[in-house]
Design a protein around this nucleic acid. Structure first.
Length: 186
DNA sequence: CTTCTCACA
DNA sequence: TGTGAGTA
């Protein structure tokens, strides 16, 4: 994602996206980490139980590594032609998205792209954002980043009783879930 | 990879 | 007529 923005050489518009990408990957992630510290403050026993999205490597939509491995155990792996059919897209489009860093499938020994179910799900979200909502690919990248951040925030709001017991937290979590479902990332 | 079409402003 | 997205 960030890589995509760095690679771009366009001046005005892409420099804005560069700043946004930097803001997300650095400042926002720090803020989320601090929020999780606050959420788990003062209770060492509970601290260990609080979910920490930034602590685990992530896949498409806020899945942690454990969920992803559970999913991959039961879900199929598709070559590009099958994945394209499932996502109702042209295989060339998938190659382009891979090059742009929008969807990064696993690779086989022969360097063939292997798409998981979550990859296909992500492709469907992209199709909705691009085709239905008319976003360009930079906009899609931005929204997918925001979705990931909002997903982290929702899990924060639901993770710690100190936070989730407040009315404000419940209202905020409901609001964010509505936004995520509108984007199609629920 | 490059090249082409197509939509759009 | 230049640019972005998708396609050949």
């Amino acid at each position: 994602m960030t890589q995509k923005f760095e690679k771009s050489s366009r001046k005005t518009k892409d420099s804005i996206f560069n700043d946004l990408a930097w803001s997300r990957s650095d400042a926002l992630n720090r803020m989320l980490a601090e929020l999780f510290e606050i959420a788990s403050h003062g209770d060492e026993n509970r601290r260990a139980q609080v979910a920490r999205p930034e602590a685990e490597p992530r896949t498409s939509f806020g899945e942690d590594a454990r969920q992803a491995s559970q999913r991959s155990r039961i879900s199929g792996v598709y070559v590009i032609s099958v994945a394209a059919r499932l996502a109702e897209m042209h295989p060339q489009t998938l190659r382009k998205y891979d090059k742009e860093g929008l969807v990064r499938p696993q690779r086989s020994e022969g360097s063939r792209r292997l798409y998981s179910d979550s990859d296909v799900e992500r492709l469907r979200v992209i199709r909705r954002l691009a085709d239905d909502l008319g976003l360009n690919l930079n906009g899609v990248s931005l929204v997918l980043d925001l979705v990931r951040s909002l997903t982290d925030i929702v899990s924060l709001l639901e993770s710690s009783p100190e936070v989730s017991d407040t009315r404000a937290a419940r209202v905020a979590a409901d609001e964010l879930r509505q936004i995520l479902s509108y984007v199609g990332a629920d």
